[in-house]
Nucleic acid binder design. Structure first.
Lengths: 108, 108
DNA sequence: AATAATACCTTGTAAAACAAGGTACCTTGT
DNA sequence: ACAAGGTACCTTGTTTTACAAGGTATTATT
């Protein structure tokens, strides 16, 4: 296997999911958090440090838009680099999934 | 989804794999570590605290056997409780896998 | 005016994977 | 006899990071 995949898994699975969501269209953290909460039980407090990290890594850019109700939303947009990162992480995820599947084997 | 699945994922994926390995037969930490290193890149330093934890949780018991070469091996054996934990964790893993797959969706 | 929903963010805590090191046993080569 | 290397155990310190809990501000609803 590649190298440090659990790190990639631990650090990467949420990041990958956020990247995947953004690949379908720009979105703001509060909504991303809600979707991730429903899907995999992520808490809201997790999203903001994560988005900050992703922005620092150049995976996303941001812009502000007013909301119909409530404070302005900070939308996140995938960069080219982010799209590439998504592809790479999907490959890693699939490899990890396969490795686990292999260990689980016939137990299923 | 259930409740705190990332916690279960983070804390659980390695534990699940070790349980799965042990379900095929007793084994000792050094060998488990080697298999896990090959499969998912786990480091040796990770296995001993993990096995300790699993023993404290009652998932495994241990016994010593001499080795043909080198120091005696501490074998780990799955308990009934460990087997049940394995089943539960597999169910959680499959649910998590499905959730991620759903988020990845058509990107694949 | 007060409440609730939206939406942003920060801080402190806890878990745990890892790297790096350390101990000790046994075999093999010289 | 001795050194080197593989086996196998374990510990410590660092870093990462998800989370809970809280805090702020805006707008709509009552």
């Amino acid at each position: 296997m590649t190298e440090s995949l659990q790190i990639q898994l631990k650090k990467g699975v949420l990041e990958m999911c956020v990247l995947a969501l953004l690949s379908r269209g720009d979105n703001y953290a509060y909504d991303i958090a809600a979707r991730m909460a429903e899907a995999v039980g992520m808490g809201e407090g997790t999203i903001y440090p994560l988005m900050r990290r992703m922005q620092n890594e150049g995976l996303v850019t941001t812009y502000l838009r007013e909301s119909s109700g409530g404070p302005p939303r900070k939308y996140y947009k995938l960069t080219k680099s982010g799209a590439l990162a998504l592809e790479a992480q999907i490959r890693e995820w699939l490899a990890f999934e396969a490795a686990v599947q292999k260990i689980l084997g016939d137990i299923k």
